[in-house]
Amino acid sequence: MNWDVIAENLPLYAEGAKLTLLLAVVSLALSFVLAVPLAFLRNGRVPAVRYAVLGYTLVFRGTPLLVQLFLVYFGLAQFELIRASVFWPWLSSPMVCVLLTFVLNTTAYSTEIFAGGLRHIPVGEIEAARAYGMSRRAQAFRILIPGMLTRSLPLYGNEMIMMLHATALASTVTLLETTGVARRITLNYYIQFEPYVTAAAIYLTLTFVLVSGFQLIQRRWAGYLESRIG
């Protein structure tokens, strides 16, 4: 066994884990901001807008993330127009491509999750808000958004874990996050066992922390939904 190689390279793993977290947190934060309004549009009154959002979520949920990533990272270079544009320095960077793809992908899933939560708010709550004379803005911020988010919590928690795990794909376009670090060590030292086991242990730990944190949040913010069932 070559665990001393792993011990020597622990700083590299720490860097990798940091990048993994960074990718997950930035993707989730940006997609949250996009998904909340999109969820409203998905349930909105204008059919054209509703179907446009559905089309977007269907395409991004219906194709593998790996294909989407390769389309953005390798695919965009096919077009002379894009390569000549001012965006090219950004669009040729793996970091920007990865974040762009991750945000587009997880926004599609989050939008559907939130839209489902919105549909499950009892009509009575909205009628009560109207009876109290709340403005549409107040209705959205006091009733609809909190109700939607708390109802979406279990599914959104899953989506967050999926996103954390999806960051491993960033290693396929040269980024040195946790999986990328493991791959590099297997190539540098010709060992196949220890590097991947270490990466797996890091992901397992991160997932465990995320799940535990989520259970706390759920008890604190969505507890009111539980007691009603019982």
């Binding site: 999806a166 491993a168 794909l169 290693s171 791959r183 196949q192 066992f193 997932t207």
Partner: peptide, 16 residues
């Protein structure tokens, strides 16, 4: 299994 990314599970089974 649910705590590890698909890609890493695959690398574990194929290489490790």
């Amino acid at each position: 299994v649910r705590g590890i990314p698909d890609l890493v599970v695959m690398l574990l089974i194929y290489y490790s």
